[in-house]
Design a protein around this nucleic acid. Sequence first.
DNA 1: AAAACATACATTTTT
DNA 2: TGTATGTTTT
Length: 731
Amino acid sequence: MPYHTPIPGEDALTDVSFTNGLTDSQKKAVAHKDGPLLVLAGPGSGKTRVITCRVAALVRAGVRPWNICAITFTNKAADEMRRRVESMQIPSGAHISTFHSLCVRLLRRYAQAAGIRADFSIYDEDDQKHLLRQVLKSADVDAERFPPARLLGGISRCKNDLEDHVAVAARADDYYTKALAKAYRLYQQALDANNALDFDDLLLRTAFLLRDRPEVRRELGEKFRYLLVDEYQDTNHAQYEIARGLALDHGNLCVTGDPDQSIYRWRGADIGNILAFERDWPNAVVIRLEENFRSRPQILALADELIANNRRRKQKKLIPTRPDAGRIEFHTARDESDEACFVAEQIRRLIGQGATAGDIAVFYRINAMSRAIEEAFITRQIPYQVVRGVEFYARKEIRDVLGYLRLIANPKDDVAFARAVNSHSQGIGKTTLERLAIYAGDHNISLDQAAREARNIPAIAAAAQQKLAAFAALIEKFRRAAEGPVAPFIKTVFEESGYARSLEDGTAKDDNAVENVGELISAAAEYDKTAESPSLLDWLQEIALYSDTDAYDAESGRVSLMTLHAAKGLEFGSVFIIGLEEGILPHERARDGTDDLEEERRLCFVGITRARDNLTITRARYRTIRGQFLATIPSQFLFELGRSEQDDGGWQDDGEEQQDAEEPDEPIAAHRRRSAPVFRVNDVVRHGIFGRGRVKQYLDLGDDSVVTVRFDSGQTKSLALKYAKLEKAKI
DNA sequence: AAAACATACATTTTT
DNA sequence: TGTATGTTTT
């Protein structure tokens, strides 16, 4: 019996009021197409709507919902898509999730084929760091000389490229890579021993599963007959292989994306994946969506002016469809608190004029920049929400409780053991733990197992032996009770472990600690309600992929504060982007390397194109960075947006400070040593690599002076005189 | 073994 | 600036 009466695709699309500028044949392709489909779409063009409409159209054409799989990058995007699909009044059941959630699901189901156990722990950055440090300490490696964070970054990159440690070792021909390969091997062995996967493993294992087990691949191809991937420009190699593997047997792969909005290169995203889609799938139908239904024409013009500076990109138009209106404003503030005051005042004015707080957002490059804004909002009683990464799950008390729970769910999880035993404190300290680790290592067993055998470890004092054994027994007792709903179980563990008591008495470092654990329990209760058969393991694996960014509430009626990364996919009537300064946007770590710089530019582009009507861009002359009050240099992006230094008149100034570039404008410069040459604005200079250029701005900081030069090649660079060999050119 | 203290250190963006 | 580790004291 047919699941649903087939309806011609066009009708299905009309049905769901899909009227945003597609030609009839494009609509038909979106609704009907068996085979690969590439949607290249600019910001505000209804890209995600194409996906939801395709899902709806497929279902109406008789495809069973559970044969459709749509993949997004963030939980937030998945939720949004689920919401939209449900509102289309079609039978639900389509699988909509992030890459990582999908991988967890597949790896649990096909654990055996993937060569792992289904009850694995998922390690986040903190866990990874802990584990790597542990491993390097006990295995005296030359890799110890490199900072763990750097090694983890290197390992992550390898995993994203689907390289295992053997492959890395094989290509290692320099000191660092050799050390990396060794660290990778040891780290991976430790992960295996702990029955744990890190975020990258989730992708890598799934990609390998699809590659090495054709029967699994075929089975999944049968299950997910239609595959859709949103934000395809942000796929890394592993994700690319997963999408390809899942679609290999039927070719029904629809991807959407915008190369100009690729902002996750640092996480291994390869913009080449979307640029080469037509090569990978030669019969792909390509749809371009260039009309923008979101922003005012001036805003689009500004965005276009900026992004045109990127070389590695496909030319694309931003075609406005809305009439002229709205406002663009630039502002230079004195310092970050002055900047925050300005933003807050502007927002107050907007609200006074009838704007809704929920339709206003402030974007910044790094999370730390939210602070000044928050302070200004608090004094002015402007309601706001900060959309922040991790945060809640990074809290000490939350991690401690999760330590217990993870250890209960996965006895091999030594990282969880260390955390739990540490929070349990009372009598088990560093030394004991160290001795226990040595014993466990010698006998090739987990810390949990070693603790049970504590009485047989002569190196450990009798009293400590007792306590370890008691701890192991306690965990074992919990383990036997870990069935069924999660929330009551967490409560039991929290109280009976004695951790609740230790939070309440004495060391009240954080008076909200107990409350926070309560919140965790509520979250678990929520899970218990929705899950069909709740289990601790399932819940742990779910929340491991959860970040507070997902907690963004579109209906909160409050001003949203978030990073530019978190802003992707959202839109607001009025947008403020703060901190357009060299070293912040673009971030200092992206200053060398054009690819990195182009990514920063895309980030700025994403921010600008979030705005529907009003856009305000600000910078501060001074900013406190890591506790130091420093003079700043305007972002080169400001030049590209047509705001040159001389033309500062375009900036609305607070008037407190005169802006004479030649005048050393604060005591900072006065006592600096000087050995570097002095330049003036408009001096013609010569650089060994970039050639001839003209000084646009000179910041006098003695030896640390920075000079901004627009070179004849057209590019603008900010150079530290100390490093850049810059000389005055003759004429 | 725990607490108090000192010192180094890194410090983007997210799953 | 804050964290996170290492060192000394109790």
